[in-house]
Design a protein around this nucleic acid. Structure first.
Lengths: 253, 253
DNA sequence: CACAAACGTTCGACATTGTCGAACCACATT
DNA sequence: AATGTGGTTCGACAATGTCGAACGTTTGTG
């Protein structure tokens, strides 16, 4: 791993958490000399990845990162294949549909089909949710042995709400259930009042490449029919990606 | 400018143009030894900025860039202030409304309010258009003396369609007009059959920070009433950002 | 089915390059 | 007006990234 590249990405990641930071804050966060941090930030600014506010004080992310994100979405085969099925699932269930992929210890939403009731809803593309606090994350993790091991042994499971799973044993048991049923559930674990159901999507190598599922208010009963629709959707998208079977014979290679 | 950081960003930029590239393609494009390129790519992969496709061959952008892009949009004051006015402008004109910022020699769209006719339209947030081929770009450039100079003297004005401005003299004359009228126009210069009108938005330092405008089919007559609405919108957003006057007394600085 | 060629990847040595500390400058605050 | 904070620049050292060569795997071809 190249040191300065690593540090540059850490700068971006820091700015992603704390949206506006002064140079000294950045330097302190990364445990670097201010002049070192300055050199890195300068390089990022030159390419528009970071901009400094007027008044030459704080730094924040720049427009170049937006362009990159847009191109990423365009290249994703999973996304283009999933969109028609997501629309279909939203129509049939009357619920919002999310599609996501794994990024280290989080799920990144790559598509969001809003509830078809015509109400104004925040677009959620690009937001991240901890793997262990989302149905999408659990659905994927159950079929990614290496990532599962890493998450289970990494120690800390960040708490989002009082319902967030905090013990690795509990999470492992749930992943076993996901493997058996092909569907993952979550209730108030990321956002209070919000529950979700999701199933994993596989590619032609039978690798889990993402997950798709619905978001519903926590109040209602878990409807078996909705589970079936989610599973069917995940299977359909997987087939379009060339997956030989669903669920896969040998979970995730 | 730190060499390896610069190279890492060039890798991302290359992957943004040519969406899938092999290591040797990347190395050739950046004029690097394959092993050097590999080290850089490896660092990017570790952070999820780049992923390699199954079959260990080609590389493409990864989910981490999407997360960054989303956070960038959230931090942008221009965007949050512009959205209500963009909705209003779209309703009044029946046209699609775009808001954009400058990134080197391009405009990046940071908000897109679709035509209010209920038809399915591609979301355009994140796409880039050459400055000299867009009304948004010309509107901003006219009030950014340094960037104007750079663009006018950089030599090449990329051609998008037969109508794209290719001569610096022509562009400079148009920018003079923009300064006089406070509004920029474009007709078939980026996309055939598509025209646009835009006005610059200023912050509390009277610096041009972006532009807002409408997209319309190239057929119709240029309506003076629409121009007035665009100008009024830009003025309103500028006021919300704390701009002391519109247009500014001392153009850009 | 076997061979060859191309590609991605790993390793180690050299010197280029990034890092750090100190000094400088501008701004804001008292 | 003076002092302190924070951002930025500069130069010297050595740590770090770069390159070339070799390895292993995959892909295309005879």
């Amino acid at each position: 791993m190249i040191q300065s590249v690593d540090r540059a990405i850490r700068v971006l990641t820091a700015l992603q958490g704390t949206r506006r930071m002064s140079l000294s804050e950045l330097a302190a966060r990364l445990e670097l000399a201010p002049s070192t941090a300055h050199g890195i930030v300068r390089s990022l600014v030159e390419h528009g990845m970071v901009v400094q506010e007027r008044g030459s004080s704080r730094y924040q992310l720049g427009p170049a990162v937006l362009r990159l994100g847009n191109v990423y979405l365009d290249t994703l085969e999973l996304r283009s294949k999933a969109i028609p099925w997501a629309e279909d699932l939203a129509r049939r269930t009357g619920l919002a549909v999310r599609t996501g992929v794994l990024l280290i210890d989080d799920v990144v939403i790559i598509h969001h089909e809003p509830r078809p009731d015509g109400s104004r809803q925040m677009p959620e593309v690009g937001i991240v949710i901890p793997v262990h606090a989302s149905a999408l994350g659990k659905a994927m993790l159950a079929f990614m042995p290496e990532d599962e091991k890493r998450v289970l042994t990494s120690g800390e499971l960040r708490s989002m709400t009082g319902e967030t799973i905090s013990s690795p044993e509990n999470l492992r048991d749930q992943l076993d259930q996901v493997r058996a049923s092909g569907i993952a559930a979550e209730r108030d674990e990321a956002v209070i009042g919000e529950s979700s159901l999701a199933s994993p999507v596989f590619d032609s190598y039978s690798e889990a490449v993402g997950a798709i599922g619905v978001v519903l208010p926590s109040g209602g009963e878990l409807d078996g029919q909705i589970s079936d629709l989610v599973r069917e959707t995940a299977r359909a998208v997987s087939r379009e990606l060339g997956a030989p079977s669903w669920p896969p014979r040998r979970p995730g290679q």
